[in-house]
Amino acid sequence: MKLKAVAASTNKSSQGFLEHKRKKTWIDNKSGCHCFMLYASDDNIEVAKLSHVCWLDVRGKFKISDLSPGIVYQVAYVVKLTKGASGWELPITLRLSLPGEEVQDRQVSLLEKPRGEWIELNVGNFLTDGRQTREVCFDIYQHGGHWKNGLIIKGAILRPKDNLTP
Rank of each mutant, 00 (worst) to 15 (best):
H20N: 13
Q107A: 04
I119G: 00
G130Q: 12
H34C: 06
H143A: 05
F36D: 00
E102Q: 14
V75A: 14
C33P: 05
L111F: 07
R59A: 12
R22K: 12
N44F: 09
E46I: 00
H20Q: 09
M37W: 09
P99R: 06
F126T: 02
M37K: 12
R22V: 05
V58C: 07
Q132I: 03
R106F: 03
W55C: 12
T93N: 14
I119E: 04
F138W: 07
V136E: 07
D43R: 03
S41E: 11
S68T: 15
I64T: 01
D57H: 13
T133H: 13
R22P: 00
M37V: 11
G150N: 12
L56C: 09
K30E: 15
R95W: 00
T93H: 00
A85M: 03
D139S: 15
K80M: 15
P91A: 01
H34N: 14
G70N: 06
V75Q: 02
G144F: 01
I152T: 14
L110M: 08
R22H: 09
L50F: 12
G130E: 14
R106C: 10
H146E: 12
R106S: 13
E102V: 10
L98D: 02
S97M: 08
I27K: 15
I45F: 06
A76M: 07
A40M: 10
K83R: 09
V103W: 04
L56D: 01
G116C: 07
D129R: 15
I64R: 06
H52R: 15
W26E: 13
Y77V: 02
V47Y: 12
H52M: 09
